[in-house]
Amino acid sequence: MLFKKLSTVERVYNIGLEQNSLFSIFNHITLFVKEAEEDLIKLYDLRVLEKIPVKNIMTRNIITINKNDSIDKLKEYIEKYRHMGYPVVDDDGKLVGVVTFRDLEKGGKKTTIEDIMTPKDKLVFISPETSASESQKIMAKMDIGRLLVLDDKGELIGIVSRGDIVRTYKIYSKGSAKIQKCSRISNFYFYDRNKKEKLKNLVDDLIMLLGGRDYIISEKEDYIEALTKDWEPLVKIMMSGNTIDHISITTKSINILEMDIIREILKKIDEYAFEEIVLTDHITLIDEKSSIQRVITDVTLFNDSKKTFGTITIRSDF
């Protein structure tokens, strides 16, 4: 069996909110996921560029200009070939430098290509195996528009430009991948001086609510479960002996607040005003590119101060 090696990008954000309503917290998580989605797509695309060597995207049909040519020849080249830079060679065809439109602008009264070119010893070269991503970083750092590609013998075999990188990026980023599968589990842990009594009453209310909405209530030894008509779990009340430990909600929705029953459950929990609620919310998204995105929220809601603190972790595996 072959296993795909995954690359991982992870970011952790500290959260501090002037609110303790569960509805508000889940709304914030949903907004955060939407805002982070574009950034994750860009990270995915940039990681894809890391796997593309410049030999696959560089220009191989190289147009050179002789060092003894006049700058008028460079003007003709720019107008004819629409490239803004050219390798400069000597009479033996050996690379001696690079000349660009920027050099032409700064050339003043100089008349030959050799007078305005950047000499070879001041150039940066890359190998054909250098990634498109690394090439882009070099060009950005040095504020240049192209890089010369040399083989193992030091011979010029190609040129890669910013335009080549942009075109490659557009090809691989065209149309973000659609989500194929979403799974989400939200766990609620409660802390209160009257925790036992409050939780018992809350669970009774939730069972009444869910049963009244035609959910199937199933009681097991260590948990009580509410199932849909298709026998898919929605709410699980976890028990430890005769004590309620925590409540879990399982869905397949990125925006949990789109479900009426979830809004009713959250409202019911808020009504009991527990002193503290620890929420761990894990969203797993799998897209058509088989990349996996996880949004992991760990926050604590404080009833007295009406504040919420914690972290949201965005993890992307592809």
Rank of each mutant, 00 (worst) to 15 (best):
E219Y: 06
R213V: 02
L210R: 01
L227S: 04
E225S: 11
D204K: 11
E219P: 08
S218Y: 08
K220G: 14
D230V: 03
D214M: 08
E197P: 08
D230S: 09
K220Q: 15
D205R: 04
D222A: 05
K196D: 15
E219A: 07
S218L: 04
V203F: 12
G211F: 01
K198W: 09
D214G: 03
D230M: 15
N194A: 15
S218K: 12
L199H: 02
L202H: 12
K229T: 12
L209W: 00
R213A: 14
D214W: 08
E197W: 10
E219H: 08
I224E: 03
D214S: 14
L202T: 09
K198L: 05
D214P: 09
I207M: 02
L210Q: 00
D214H: 09
A226D: 01
K220I: 09
N201R: 14
E221A: 11
E221L: 09
S218M: 09
K200W: 10
Y223I: 06
D230N: 12
I224M: 09
K200N: 10
Y215P: 00
D230Q: 13
E221G: 07
K195N: 12
M208H: 14
E225C: 09
I224V: 12
K196H: 05
I207S: 00
V203T: 12
L227A: 02
L206K: 04
I207V: 09
L227G: 02
K198N: 05
I224F: 10
G211A: 03
I224P: 07
L209D: 01
I217L: 02
D204Y: 06
Y223W: 14
K200V: 06
K200G: 03
G212C: 01
I224S: 06
I216T: 12
L209M: 06
M208S: 07
E197S: 11
K220H: 14
E197G: 09
I224Q: 05
K220A: 05
M208C: 03
K196A: 15
N201I: 15
N194S: 07
E219K: 11
W231Y: 13
K229M: 13
L199Q: 02
L227F: 10
G211N: 02
K229W: 12
G212V: 00
K200D: 07
I207K: 01
D222Q: 04
L202C: 07
L209C: 04
Y223L: 13
A226L: 02
S218N: 15
K220L: 11
I207Q: 02
N194P: 05
G211Y: 01
E225L: 15
K229H: 15
L199I: 05
L202V: 04
L227R: 04
K196I: 15
E225F: 06
D230Y: 06
W231V: 13
E219T: 12
N194M: 11
K195H: 13
T228W: 05
L209G: 01
D222R: 05
W231N: 13
G211D: 00
G211K: 00
K196M: 15
D222H: 07
M208T: 09
Y215L: 01
D222V: 06
Y223S: 13
L206C: 06
D205E: 11
K229A: 11
W231R: 14
E219N: 06
K198P: 11
K198H: 14
Y215W: 04
L202K: 05
E221P: 06
Y215M: 03
K200T: 10
D222F: 04
N201S: 09
K196L: 13
E225Y: 04
V203N: 14
